[in-house]
């Protein structure tokens, strides 16, 4: 019932946003068309601004829908569970003023960084080791596949039983969830290092250690980062779930606690924080990845 009510305004809202965005974006396009070699930079800048407007259009439309939908379209009973945006932002402001949201963010971040860091160190070093010793890989691979395909959350009760509801169990399950993407991507990439490069390095007189340090590791970095990004997403997902089940602080706890205390705007404030946190983490990892694989991202551009 509530979903149909929400969906209705979407149609009128979207063209409105598009119309508002239209002229400036069109200006960007015509500028691009007129682009000469001299104006190339200006043209791309205009195009970038145009695409920025286009990209934010959907988000703005969504936020507008969130703000206006509950007030004008939802029934009063639904509105209680779906407060408009300004109420959620006000709730967030209150949580910020009392300092409680910072506390929750800090708790969540500490856990995810600890778990993620452990997974990263263990995953990359073990992955390099396993890939280097082919036989070890052959022996361990079936087991790794089994573990990888076991959803981390399915093991949450096990972790809670063994490690209690304290920090250890949460950090451990985050580490567990983040470990496998990192490990498997590391193994995969070390195995696909161009054998010609290894031959070349050996002919240059590099010993095994140098070969590892100067050839295998740098060529594996981009794919390892793919694993790291997957791990980043997985670790936040699992962390929130773990905090929902049993915790005294953290964003997952905030969400569940607000729900059970009927502080609905607070609950949405928590959810909003989680999605912003996820965005920030992904943005950071993408930037890092770009930094470490400049030589490779440019290859794609070169081929195009």
């Amino acid at each position: 019932m509530s979903t149909t009510l929400i969906r209705e305004p979407k149609a009128p809202a979207a063209p409105q946003a598009a119309a508002a965005v239209g002229p400036s974006a069109l200006a960007g396009w015509t500028a691009q068309q007129r682009t000469t070699a001299v104006l190339a930079a200006a043209g791309t800048a205009a195009a970038r601004a145009g695409s920025l407007v286009w990209k934010s259009a959907a988000i703005l439309a969504f936020l507008a829908l969130w703000e206006l939908g509950p007030t004008y379209l939802a029934s009063p009973s639904t509105r209680v569970f779906l407060p408009p945006l300004h109420e959620v932002l006000a709730a967030w402001g209150r949580l910020f003023e009392t300092g409680s949201i910072q506390g929750h963010i800090a708790a969540s971040l500490t856990r995810s960084v600890a778990g993620f860091g452990t997974a990263l160190a263990a995953g990359v070093s073990l992955g390099l080791l396993i890939a280097w010793y082919g036989r070890l890989n052959a022996v361990l691979n079936p087991l790794l596949e089994l573990f990888r395909n076991t959803a981390a959350l399915a093991l949450l009760p096990v972790f809670t039983l063994l490690l209690g509801i304290g920090e250890e169990s949460k950090i451990s399950i985050v580490a567990y969830a983040a470990f496998f993407p990192v490990l498997l991507n590391t193994i995969a990439d070390v195995k696909t290092v161009d054998p010609l490069l290894i031959r070349a390095a050996r002919s240059l007189g590099l010993n095994s250690f140098r070969l590892f340090q100067k050839v295998i590791l740098p060529s594996a970095v981009p794919t390892i980062f793919t694993g790291i990004r997957m791990a980043g997403t997985a670790s936040i997902l699992v962390l929130i779930a773990a905090e929902m089940v049993g915790a005294k602080a953290g964003l997952g706890y905030l969400i569940v606690n607000a729900q059970s205390s009927f502080l609905i705007p607070d609950m949405y404030a928590g959810i909003l924080t989680v999605s912003l946190l996820g965005l920030a983490v992904n943005f950071l990892l993408v930037a890092l990845e770009r930094h470490f694989s400049r030589w490779r991202t440019a290859v794609g551009a070169d081929a195009a």
Partner: peptide, 18 residues
Amino acid sequence: PGKDRAVVFQQYALFPWR
């Protein structure tokens, strides 16, 4: 392999990250 000999390969074998 030794430093008294060097190999040049058909496919260049340059390290793309360098």
